[in-house]
Amino acid sequence: MTEPVLSVRDLNVGFRTSRGLAHVVNGISYDVQPGETLAIVGESGSGKSVGTLALLGLLPPGVAKVSGSAVFAGEELIGRSEEKLRPIRGAGIGMVFQDPMTSLNPVLTVGRQIVEAVRAHGPMPKAAARARAEELLAEVGIPDPRSRADAFPHQLSGGMRQRVMIAIALAGDPKVLIADEATTALDVTVQAQIIELIGRLQSEHSTGVIWITHDLGVVAGIADHVLVMYAGRCVEEGSVDELFDRPVHPYTRGLLGSMPLVDDPRPARERDPLSTMPGLPPDPVRLPPGCSFYPRCTIRADERCRTEVPPLVPIAGSSDRHRAATFYAPEGV
């Protein structure tokens, strides 16, 4: 295996609230390999976004308490000063967020915003930066980049705006690209375009991609390795095939069972109801003492479920990168 470009170990994020410390990310570890896609899957509040924002020091310093380690290109990111993080943002690790309309400045042309990003990564004459901006727009598949560079964000469609965000993220030629629900606000046909684009750019530049999403369908199509988060913990991880073919954790299994399938040939009235998980995720200020999924779990295999946090351990009969945090060991997975 090649050297990972990003290594995260035992990352913890807490938020100070009036009710006490909210444990939002609790001991997450993963590696990102060059040219590979790591998908981080979870529902609202699972900590999937906060965990990556913490790497780049993008959380409010007075409120967030971050510990653990994140090594990018041989350098530790956690605890770095704002000044020393700045060159890594964009040039080392680029980010694309869900909503391009709120990430772009509405009163500046998109060309100007890309130029700004290009020049932030190193001094460059204006004309050269403008040429580079047009090049980037062409690279992300925007037709007629010369005139489109003079457009304001509101003059572009949602898909086009997301392409502009990707162009900005690429301006620094990052080694890791974090796509945080980057296609969630887009229509499926536009989503397909953006997924295709990021895939192409990734293979051309050998970029390591962290794809954060709640959509297991997207994950199945793009990921190499998958990490499932619940209440700030990784409950299961594995190769995309292991995770979808032999899911072990009751939460992963529940999540997969709750998804309607577009290509199930049966008419709606002949289908079984979707499987559901009762209840809601726990309050991060008062996490349960044992497994965080215990209150919603219908299996509750072991007395320890209630009192002990199950460790993330390899699954018997799977590769050693397929691990789950559960005392439940289903037969014949």
Partner: peptide, 27 residues
Amino acid sequence: EALVSAVPVPDPQRERERERIVLRGDV
């Protein structure tokens, strides 16, 4: 046809085998 092919399916095997019609341009 394009719409159906663009809907992601939570199955990596089928995702690899499916042919996706990626529409060009905007509405």
